[in-house]
């Protein structure tokens, strides 16, 4: 270990506990997680040809479908295993049916953020009887990637939701 790094650890030890623990946990900090919100815009070129382009969604009106994309990049030299991404469906938004993607992952949903299950196992009590939950009632999405994420590799998860 270089002298510079030793000095760094010594300095870190003086900081508050929360910061301190993060520094030591950095040994396992391999995945960099990025989240992004976009909307689709129809672009018409000079010849009248139409194409759909994604642009950042910073301000949207009710009824707009927003595409949320989460990318997990493994920045370490070893593989990360049991990679699981969780994302709540944002407030005031309703998940769009069949819009969730995540290559190589098992996707489950939750109504309360605690119990996750496949869609056909999610039920809602209504008038004393259980019924299947509707997609727009899902409040959380979980992607469990089946294979280890190799060094330098990226895993992507996405969903679409409409602003109420």
């Amino acid at each position: 270990m270089s002298q510079g790094k030793l000095k760094f650890i010594a300095a870190a030890a003086l900081l508050a506990f929360a910061v301190d623990s993060q520094v030591l946990a950095a040994d396992a900090r391999c995945i960099s997680l990025k989240s992004m919100a976009e909307v689709e815009r129809e672009i018409v070129d000079d010849k009248g040809g139409k194409s759909v382009k994604r642009v950042a969604a910073s301000k949207v009106v009710p009824g707009t479908e927003v595409i949320w994309t989460i990318t997990a990049e493994n920045t370490c030299k070893q593989a990360s295993e049991n990679v699981t991404i969780n994302n709540p469906v944002p407030a005031h938004m309703q998940l769009v049916a069949n819009s969730v993607t995540g290559a190589g992952s098992d996707v489950t949903y939750s109504l309360d953020g605690k119990a996750f299950a496949k869609p056909d196992q999610l039920t809602v009590k209504e008038n004393g009887a259980d019924r299947k939950a509707r997609t727009n009632e899902y409040k959380h999405i979980r992607w469990e990637f089946k294979n280890p994420l190799p060094a330098g590799a990226t895993a992507t998860a996405s969903f679409r939701a409409v602003l109420e």
Binding site: C30, I31, L33, S35, A37, W68, I70, A72, S80, E81, N82, V83, T84, I85, N86, N87, P88, P90, L149, A157
Partner: peptide, 8 residues
């Protein structure tokens, strides 16, 4: 919206 990841 903020996503979270857990891994080993």
């Amino acid at each position: 919206s903020t996503a979270e990841v857990t891994y080993t």
